[in-house]
Simulated assay, not measured.
Amino acid sequence: MPKSTAGSNQGDSHDTCVICLSSVTERAITSPCNHYTFDFVCLVSWLKQRSTCPL
């Protein structure tokens, strides 16, 4: 399940979403693997199609 961490200091604000390859604007973290290189909207869309981490 994604968790939004907008405004947190985790990672660089110029990270690229590994799903859409654009800048991450609202970071999401996967659980239980804790990968955090996703934009929240992209991860939600991904999880509607598949129940696995994109990485």
Rank of each mutant, 00 (worst) to 15 (best):
S45K: 15
S31I: 13
P54T: 12
L21I: 00
T37K: 00
Q49G: 11
L47N: 10
D12Q: 13
T16K: 14
Y36H: 06
N9G: 13
V24R: 01
H35V: 02
G11P: 11
S8E: 03
G7V: 01
V41A: 07
L43S: 04
W46M: 07
H14V: 06
R50P: 05
A6R: 07
I29V: 15
D39G: 01
T16H: 09
S4C: 07
V18F: 05
T5Y: 04
H14N: 15
M1D: 10
V41G: 00
F38E: 01
C42V: 07
T37E: 01
V18M: 14
F40Y: 12
T37C: 01
C42W: 07
F40N: 01
S51T: 13
T30I: 06
S23W: 00
D15M: 13
M1F: 02
I29T: 11
S8M: 03
L55C: 13
T30Y: 07
K48M: 12
V44Y: 02
T25F: 02
C17D: 14
T25S: 05
W46A: 05
L43I: 02
S51M: 11
W46G: 03
S13H: 05
D15Y: 08
R27Y: 06
I19Y: 09
C42R: 00
E26G: 00
S22A: 02
N34P: 00
S8P: 08
L21Q: 06
T25K: 12
L21T: 00
T52S: 12
L55S: 13
T5I: 12
H35T: 05
Y36W: 04
S51R: 15
S13G: 04
S23L: 08
C53W: 05
P32T: 14
H35I: 09
T25N: 10
V24Q: 01
A6E: 08
T16V: 14
V44I: 11
C42K: 04
L43T: 04
D12I: 10
S31C: 07
D12H: 14
I19W: 11
F40T: 00
Q49K: 15
Y36D: 11
E26Y: 00
G11M: 09
F40W: 06
R50Y: 15
C20D: 13
D39N: 09
T25R: 11
R50V: 10
A6D: 03
T5H: 00
D39P: 04
M1R: 06
V18Q: 13
E26R: 10
C33V: 08
S8A: 06
V41Y: 04
E26Q: 09
T52W: 14
C42Y: 07
N34L: 11
A28H: 01
S22H: 08
S31Q: 15
Y36F: 09
H35D: 09
C53P: 12
C17E: 08
K48D: 11
